[in-house]
Nucleic acid binder design. Structure first.
Lengths: 129, 129
DNA sequence: GCGCATAGGTACTGAAAGTTAAGTACGCAC
DNA sequence: GTGCGTACTTAACTTTCAGTACCTATGCGC
């Protein structure tokens, strides 16, 4: 079994283990996507909403609040009228960006393999039925 | 802005982009936890359920099916009575394990920083109110 | 032959998440 | 002075998630 070190270092059985808590945060449907777009240089609410296809205004605001509350994104409100607010990654947010890089690379590299696995699974199901 | 390369290589705006699809799969609440436990050497339904605290039988079955359908976990049914089924990581599953390793390391390393950020945010909220 | 164990499947139900649509408050161009 | 744009907030509605409870089939101990 060729598994990396983290199999020993994280214990999901432990309710106090940070894995549950933070996995819920960054395993969220939109969080990483929003951080990605901010990292690409889009800092304003409207810009982000237009870049992240399919997100509603409510989810964007809600997710940005959660990211801000956890120190991953900094919110700068210029307190002008009309409103002008900018979001930027904090150093902590940037470090998370680096940590999930390999995962995104895996997604890109492995997508074809996953599609093949799905097709094979569907074929097995059809055959069994 | 010190962001890694993947900010340019993945485009969440594109509905065809694999990021959405696979992020939903592995960003699931239980998938990574279950793969972790299987990687630790627990291969049977009951073993996994006892290791992953808080999961119900239904969610375990459901998640294992999804992982199997996507080629991350292999299911071996020995077709005996009483039933004996074993789950193991496929090579694809092991490669995903490696890819999320840095993320788990980040979680362990950054948890204190996140807790501090939360406390600071709560203090700001209390002050504003 | 009763109940327990295994590894699930299925249906019902409540909770949570997310969507749409509308409202807030102001300035600016037309 | 009508409508647009910004960055939200709120309410009502819908969809999805997840847990409980009960069901399959079989051999074992008693």
């Amino acid at each position: 079994m060729d598994m990396p070190d983290w199999v020993a270092s994280v214990d999901p059985c432990d309710a106090d283990c940070p894995s549950r808590d933070l996995l819920d945060l960054i395993g969220d449907r939109w969080s990483l996507l929003i951080m990605l777009v901010i990292g690409q240089g889009f800092h304003r609410n409207g810009e982000i909403r237009r870049r992240v296809g399919g997100i509603s205004q409510k989810m964007l605001t809600q997710t940005l609040r959660a990211l801000e509350a956890n120190g991953l994104v900094a919110r700068h409100d210029f307190a002008t009228v009309p409103p002008h607010v900018e979001y930027r990654l904090t150093p902590l947010g940037v470090s998370l960006g680096h940590a999930v890089g390999p995962m995104f690379q895996w997604i890109e590299a492995s997508y074809p393999a996953v599609l093949r696995a799905r097709a094979a699974y569907a074929a097995r199901q059809a055959q069994a039925a």
